[in-house]
């Protein structure tokens, strides 16, 4: 097991940058290609990569299964909650215009909030699915 030193070193070099890349994809999605779906999948892929190289226990120490399973409904709650807030502010469901004085700026804030919800649900779901598949094998 100790012979895979190349994998371990490479993984330790790659993973932080890839996670930062996921955040870049997330928050730069307004201006370049990217968004919540892609960022969620990239982040989940990095967690899976970590679990493959260092073992499931090590990965579950960093990203506990309880947290991951909590992320699955939390993201959709953020998404739907943004809609409810926009209703409380006197607009239609999921119309983000009242979030700022300028309706277009409000739309942009709303898009960022909604994309965070998408990120949380997608990455949580992918990692939870992976954990349950791998946990089944032992």
């Amino acid at each position: 097991m100790r012979l895979d030193v190349i994998f371990r070193v490479t993984a330790k070099i790659i993973i932080p940058f890839a996670l930062v890349f996921a955040l870049y994809v997330q928050f730069h999605g307004d201006f370049g290609p990217g968004g919540g779906f892609q960022a969620g999948v990239v982040a989940a892929a990095m967690v899976i990569f970590y679990a493959i190289i260092f073992g499931l226990e090590a990965a579950q120490k960093v990203f506990p299964p309880r947290l991951v399973e909590l992320m699955v409904p939390a993201g959709i709650a953020i998404f739907a909650g943004v809609g409810v807030i926009s209703m409380l502010l006197g607009e239609n469901y999921l119309n983000y215009s009242p979030f700022a004085a300028n309706p277009a700026l409000g739309q942009e804030y709303g898009i960022i909030l909604v994309e965070i919800g998408v990120l949380v649900t997608v990455s949580g779901t992918m990692v939870a699915i992976f954990y349950s598949f791998v946990g089944r094998g032992r």
Binding site: G35, F37, V41, V122, T125, M126, I129, S132, F133
Partner: peptide, 20 residues
């Protein structure tokens, strides 16, 4: 299609779970 791909992998995972 962007949303369809992510939904597709989720349903694929469901199918694989059923296979297991």
């Amino acid at each position: 299609i962007l949303t369809a791909i992510v939904v597709g992998v989720a349903t694929l995972a469901l199918g694989l779970a059923l296979v297991v």
